[in-house]
């Protein structure tokens, strides 16, 4: 396969599928990007996926892979380890992410120095198994990412359930926090972890004096009524079905899908148990899908 330099074949290139060991072009004229390597003056693909070109840079994007973090990304993760002055967080990446004690909001004021007493009671903030939403702050030399939760939007997750999807299905959007009309809050982590939870009113979330440590680091779920539980389960199942069919996700797709399911009066479990329902759902949302 040759990449033609002269024609403006941007679109034709996009859809080109390649696989490891296939020669893409000469390395004299092009630069190698991710998913490629150079041998004998040739750029060769190292993963199976779509070939993309930006000016002289050739990259191959694999369709199924682990999350590749970038600074500023919003991720959902799970604490795997409490270490000295830091937590280790599983964020579906190639290594566990690191959340430093100095990059979380400490109780008693948003901005203050961390004390020795904070180090001793780290487990009162986050424990092994806790879920949290955070932002990628920086990278270490070995490529591991450092997270921070220094915003009122970030922190521990409660009142909902986690759904995992392939990370490529989550597109970078203006906001990754959504409130669906059905009384469900949604956090679309760019690492493919999605948090579906009961809606929390804005003023409750913010708190009046800015920051309420008790509420932010609480392990106790709020009271959730049956209708909300059903809505959370329905949204989760819609996400699972769409992810199984490799449909890119955003809020419009999910709202459309949710409304379709309610309209057709399918039960929550029909989505997962009946393949005909799943297929019908996927074709129903085809119109609302985002352009890639």
């Amino acid at each position: 396969m040759e990449v033609d330099d002269t024609d403006g074949g941007e679109t034709s290139l996009r859809s080109k599928i390649t696989s490891p060991g296939e020669s893409l072009t000469s390395s004299q004229a092009f630069m190698r990007g991710h998913g490629t390597y150079v041998e004998d003056d040739e750029v060769i693909a190292s993963v199976a996926g779509t070939v993309e070109r930006v000016n002289k840079l050739i990259t191959v994007r694999p369709l199924q892979t682990r999350y590749n973090p970038e600074v500023g990304d919003l991720v959902v993760g799970r604490i795997t380890e409490v270490a000295a002055r830091r937590w280790k967080v599983d964020a579906n990446s190639r290594q566990d992410a690191v959340l430093m004690l100095s990059s979380v909001n400490l109780p008693g004021g948003v901005q203050r120095r961390k004390l020795e007493s904070d180090e001793l009671q780290m487990r009162t903030f986050f424990e092994e198994g806790d879920l949290l939403v955070a932002e990628v702050q920086a990278f270490f030399a070995d490529g591991a990412m450092s997270l921070h939760t220094r915003s009122l939007k970030y922190g521990k997750l409660r009142n909902g359930q986690l759904v995992t999807v392939p990370p490529i299905l989550i597109l970078r959007l203006k906001s990754h926090f959504y409130s669906l009309p059905c009384g469900v809050d949604l956090i679309l982590g760019l690492n493919g972890y999605i948090w579906v939870s009961k809606h929390v009113k804005d003023n409750e979330q913010e708190g009046e004096e800015g920051f309420d440590a008790e509420a932010v680091y609480s392990n106790q779920n709020d009271e959730i009524d049956d209708a909300t539980r059903a809505a959370v389960a329905r949204v989760s199942n819609v996400i699972r079905v769409l992810a199984a069919h490799f449909v890119p996700l955003n809020d419009t797709v999910l709202v459309e899908a949710y409304e379709w399911v309610v309209e057709q009066e399918y039960t929550v479990k029909d989505l997962l148990l009946r393949e005909d329902v799943a297929d019908a759902l996927v074709s129903a949302v085809a119109t609302a899908r985002p352009d890639l």
Binding site: S15, I17, S19, A48, G49, T50, L63, Q64, I168, L169, A244, H245, F246, V247, P248, D279, V282, S283, A286, T287, R289, L292
Partner: peptide
């Protein structure tokens, strides 16, 4: 093996790009 990989990859790419349901399980 390459044909199998390409068939799988293009089925996924198509499912992402268009309205078609991805290749069945």
């Amino acid at each position: 093996m390459r044909n199998a990989i390409k068939a799988r990859t293009s089925a996924l790419a198509r499912a992402m790009g268009e309205g078609h349901p991805a290749g069945a399980p």
